[in-house]
Design a protein around this nucleic acid. Structure first.
Lengths: 174, 174
DNA sequence: CAAGATTGACACATCAATCTTA
DNA sequence: TAAGATTGATGTGTCAATCTTG
């Protein structure tokens, strides 16, 4: 039924949300808006980095060799190649990464975390993880956390069916 | 302990995430990035509206008199007054809302949903709700939905302690 | 002086166009 | 022709400054 409604744009017979559904969606909407904003604010304030920039550096820091192809990094950060390219430009200007042509495939570009970038992660990651703990992990019981994990998996599957699952990650510096 | 870490910026001893915690945070991160993007894309494609614009119109459509003060509307949409002001300018240009000075308090401005704005909501809301259903509500069991609601409440409390809870809502047109 | 709201400058994301190499 | 990546134009959010009224 829902399929038909989705397909049929503004066809009639909308199934409105009942009070419980509405309350749940309301709460989730709040998280969708406020949690990213809070994490962005923390990173911006403490490290002068956006969430996306942090994620890119974190991914590189976790990779053996601290090197990734741009297209790989784009997937890992849940972002478009175009967006990553712009961000890489800034990060390179700040000295956190360096870009170099691949020898085997000259179309490809490798992003490499510099020593300065590594130091930045070492300095930044603990504070960021502490905030993730405070706002999410430690705010929930283990059972709630497990429930969130399951529910998030279902939602992701509904949003992008057949996606190999989300590769994004947190924590870095080790 | 966490409190101390949060307060102490990049003080030592980071408590990294264990595998379960990491997996849960990973899944939630994916939702944080992909779900808003998917909803934005649907609204943009089907109605030429951003999520925020839709929310503003929806709030007005649900209010008796279809009128709200700018500052009220800002709170309801989880946005800054500045952001709302910019958006209101666009919505007014498109003929969906109208702004008029309040008679009682001449500092205040009232945003009023026009007939065209109302029609827009009537045409847009069913499709949007259908997508919310498909991606979230109907993707979860009732028990999961309840768990999400509880967890979201806890997270919001951790993000902004003492906030009166999120006023954002969906559905409109009735 | 504080509250309500607006404005302009700047930063970032998105999209389409482009360029190079497989 | 497709894959990998970059670039520039455009639109929107954020922040600080400003204006007006209580």
């Amino acid at each position: 039924v829902v399929e038909a409604e989705v397909a049929g744009e503004e066809s009639g017979d909308p199934r409105w949300l009942d009070p419980d559904e509405r309350a749940a969606w309301l709460a989730l909407s709040g998280v969708l808006i406020r949690l990213p904003a809070a994490l962005d604010a923390q990173l911006e304030r403490d490290a002068g980095l956006s969430n996306f920039e942090y994620l890119a550096l974190a991914m590189l820091s976790e990779t053996p060799g601290r090197t990734l192809r741009m297209s790989q990094l784009a997937v890992l950060t849940n972002g478009s190649l175009s967006r990553l390219s712009h961000v890489a430009q800034r990060l390179e200007r700040q000295g956190y990464i360096r870009r170099e042509q691949s020898a085997t495939d000259r179309r490809s570009v490798q992003a490499v975390l510099t020593d300065a970038g590594w130091d930045k992660m070492v300095a930044t990651a603990p504070g960021h993880v502490a905030h993730v703990r405070a706002m999410v992990i430690d705010a929930l019981t283990p059972a709630q956390l497990a429930a969130v994990r399951d529910a998030a998996g279902r939602i992701l599957e509904a949003v992008e069916p057949g996606s190999p699952f989300n590769p994004a990650a947190e924590t870095a510096g080790d």
